[in-house]
Write a protein that binds this DNA or RNA. Structure first.
Lengths: 225, 225
DNA sequence: TAAGAATTAAAACGCTTGTTTGAAAAAACA
DNA sequence: TGTTTTTTCAAACAAGCGTTTTAATTCTTA
């Protein structure tokens, strides 16, 4: 197995890729514990032993799947943030601008994956309430750096606010975002069909607005907008 | 077993109550799938067969536990809402007033249970991202009626807003609330100890403010406050 | 094409799960 | 008290889990 990695730089990816895809879908539907290697194998039309062969263990499989799905989103966030800063001559950004760079990348990915049978929104949302410990650790690793960056950015926009105040409301903003994603599937039920869960763009825009206003006006003495 | 219920109006509740408590604790820590009847029995210092004897099945046990914990909160919400309306001579309430009745009752319960080893915040939050189907159904049953009531109330406050608009932002508000509760445990990590997760009151107040402003200013043409 | 490496496949392993069983103990009642 | 009901207990059940093993197959490459 080690030889595989070292000697063959281009292993046959088909089965591996199918396993990842099946894992993503089943994880987003049933969570970590509800996902079994047997169900993954069936979904991916692969053998039961394939997951252990390609990834070593169930944990490693799930971790790799999460890495592949989440990493690009975070990267896109940082890209957008840099873009905005450049377009703004490196002056402090507006709250709305900032949160748009945080929220839009995930909206894009959701739209992309809308045709596939796996909802990315559900997947991301799962990772943040998943009780399994090693997933909690991963979630922390992935998001704490992002949180740091956005905290710094918001501090520039609200220079008079103490760090604690920024932290609190960033926490609420992120929680809103994840909560909205997690609940998104239920929106249609909840509103008796009045709001369609497929309107991803509408959701993202409303969410960005909601979060920006909640953040700004929630602050003790909100200075700029 | 049926005879139990019919013939004995005051059955020995001790074991039963211990089972419920253990279930609450373990569910909030590990979710539905991570909770096993063996771990419940151990935690409750009861026999493995006790859960099946008293409740019939694991599902029934968990459902009963959720009912006992969530029902009082919803009841308190309606109480507070009625109080506010009476104090306001039945005029339309302010957004902040409305959301306070939605959010505070859960804060009260969290504070109450803070001494016990089970975090109610975590428990409630679990129910709304739990992948298990029968819990999803329960969650829907419990919260859709509450949603209806608050939608009506908010419609009175914002008479010019279409129902859809109200639904969208109520959805976002509820998602924020649940997301914040779910993430609450991670707040301390996330902020490097700057914000203490034990400050429940602070959290509840900030959350109420955040949600009220997000709701109001997110609306297309927000009329009153 | 032949040799070697990478992948697939089927079967079994030990372990944990929810549930059931039947007897023992405790409680309730007359 | 003696009898009946309720509750506890230990043991076992089948089913499902992640993982390992060993052999067959496919692919690569010299």
């Amino acid at each position: 197995m080690i030889a595989t990695v070292i000697k063959n730089p281009k292993p046959k990816l088909e089965t591996r890729a199918r396993l990842i895809e099946a894992t993503a879908r089943l994880f987003s539907l049933h969570g970590y514990n509800g996902l079994t290697l047997r169900s993954v194998a069936k979904e991916a039309k692969a053998n039961l032993a394939a997951a252990n062969y390609h990834f070593g263990s169930k944990d490693a499989l799930v971790l790799e799947m999460l890495r592949e799905r989440i990493q690009p989103i975070n990267q896109r966030r940082l890209e957008l943030l840099e873009e905005e800063k450049n377009n703004n001559s490196n002056l402090p950004l507006g709250v709305f601008q900032i949160f748009r760079t945080l929220i839009h990348p995930i909206g894009e990915e959701i739209s992309k994956s809308a045709n596939s049978r796996c909802s990315l929104a559900q997947l991301v949302a799962r990772t943040f309430t998943e009780p399994t410990e090693f997933i909690e650790r991963m979630h922390h690793r992935f998001f704490s750096q992002i949180a740091e960056i956005y905290h710094r950015e918001l501090s520039l926009t609200f220079p008079n606010q103490p760090a604690k105040e920024i932290y609190w409301h960033l926490h609420l903003a992120v929680a809103s975002m994840l909560g909205a994603l997690a609940q998104h599937r239920r929106l249609e039920d909840f509103t008796k069909g009045m709001c369609n869960e497929n309107q991803v763009d509408e959701m993202i825009n409303r969410l960005t607005k909601f979060v920006s206003h909640g953040f700004t006006h929630g602050l003790r003495n909100s200075s700029p907008s």
